[in-house]
Structure formats: structure tokens, C-alpha cells
Amino acid sequence: MTKLGYYPGCSLEGTASDYGISVRRMARALGWELQEIEDWNCCGATAAHQTNHLLALSLPARDLALAEEQGITELLVPCAACFSRLVHANKAMQQDPETAREINDIIEMNYRGTVSVLNLIEALQKYAMPDIAGKVQRNLSGLKVACYYGCLLLRPPKYTEFDDAEQPSSMEDIVRALGAEPLDWPFKTECCGAGLSMSNTGAVVDLTHKILENARHHGARVIAVACPMCHSNLDMRQLDVSRRYGKYNIPILFLSQLVGLALGVSEKELGLKKHFVKATSIIR
């Protein structure tokens, strides 16, 4: 039985509740036990690191320190934004004793740097591959999937280091193991505009359009993501893109939903009905 610490983050409890639900459901199907950090707080996201660099390290540091106290050594962080913030804080404290001292002083805890932070792809790589192929219950063959990594999972590579930052292939490996058909497309690491979704919608619609168009051009039936921001930009904003640039109809699936589907979990249990772009009935 694989036991992992779990940090859902705010989005997975809110706008990306479908991600949160599907991660838990997928974990159950894979036989993973998730131990949620007790009393975790928000990682601070973009707002913190764009305006106060100490806050940007301190908020996730409290979560890491709590995880350490609660006996967690490996922490699954499915949200790419939270993952990025937690990895940044973790590496900054592990690599520089002076930073560690300052941040520990602020959070009034003593984080020793023993937790390692995993994103969803890493966790699947480590604890589901390669034998996941043997657990597949639903036939996904012929389903053309564009794997979209976005920014925060891969960059900066000195922190994230689990895959090539420019030509990643780990999500494709998983999708292939599920029996679906990953596509080769060049925009899998392009930025969707992320946190500017509400404050600069125009730019985000433009960027999202480029990504959707490139995926469609390469024959994508669905796009797989592992980030709530990528999901809301590609899914919710797809309506705005369609309004401005003409109709798009590409369901955006969280990787956990795709894995869950392959393992035979029902669409409802995976939260597929919560999407703006209809994501049910992908499977024949």
C-alpha cells in the first residue's frame, strides 16, 4: 500500500473540486492512502510571490513544517501552482541555511527539510508506472490526447527536475500506458496566462486560443492537464475563445480523471459533469 502525504490546496477544495474529487478517487483505485496535512493553509500562490517574497516562502513553509511534524516524508501536491510554491520554498530552505533560519523564525516552527514534494505526474511515475497498464478496465484506444504541462510543473527545471523542461514526455508515457494515444504537439509547455485569468482576461483568451488551436491542429480529441489554472483557462475560457475566434469543443480532462476513467471509475465519481466543455461520453 502506497502511503502519501496530501496537500489539496484551495482550488481543489473550490473551483477545481473536480480535480480534488478525482485525485482522491483515482488514489483509491490505485490503492494509495492519502494522508491530508492537518490544518494546512493556502500556499500564497501568485499573489504572495508577486508582492512579498518573504510571504511567498513562509506560507508554504508552514505547510511543509506541519507535514514534517505529522510524519509525512512524501507529499503529493496535485495543483501545479501549489506544487511550484511548495517546491520553491522547500528547495530555498533546503539549500540555504540562512533562508531556512529566517523563514523558521517567521513561522515560529522548525522545518528541517525532510519532506519531498511530488506533483501528480511524479507520483504516478513513481507509484503507478509501469504496471498501471495491467489495471486498465476501460478501453481508451484511439483516444487522441494532447498532454498539456503548462508552466509551473516544469519550470524552473533546477527545482522541478522530474522531466525535460522543453520536450517533456512523462505525461505521455502515462497516457500511453492507459491505452490512449498521446499526441506530439509543440505547445505543451506554452503559457496559458495562468493567474491573469480574471484580471487580464483578454490576454488569457488570446493565449488560450493559441494553445487550443495548436492542439486541434494536431488532432486532439481531449487535452489532459495537471493544473487547476490551466484547466479553468482552457475549459471555462474556451467559451470566451469560441465567442471570439469560432467554435471550439475540446474537453479538458485532469490527468487524474483520465487515469480514473481508464481504471473503470464512473464519470460522475470523477467529477466529469462539472466541466464547462462537455467532458462526458468521451469513451465509447
Binding site: C10, T51, S199
Partner: peptide
């Protein structure tokens, strides 16, 4: 100002409750 307003609201929420509620 839009972006700053967003950051401010975000931080205020987290400061008060410890987590972000998107509504």
C-alpha cells in the same frame, strides 16, 4: 490596478481565514 486588486483581495482572504475561498 486590476491585477493589484486581485492580489490584494486574495491576500486579504488568506490572511483572515488561512485559506482561499474563490467565491
Amino acid at each position: 490596478s486590476n491585477i493589484i486588486a486581485f492580489h490584494k483581495t486574495f491576500k486579504n482572504g488568506v490572511e483572515k481565514t488561512g485559506r482561499l475561498n474563490e467565491f
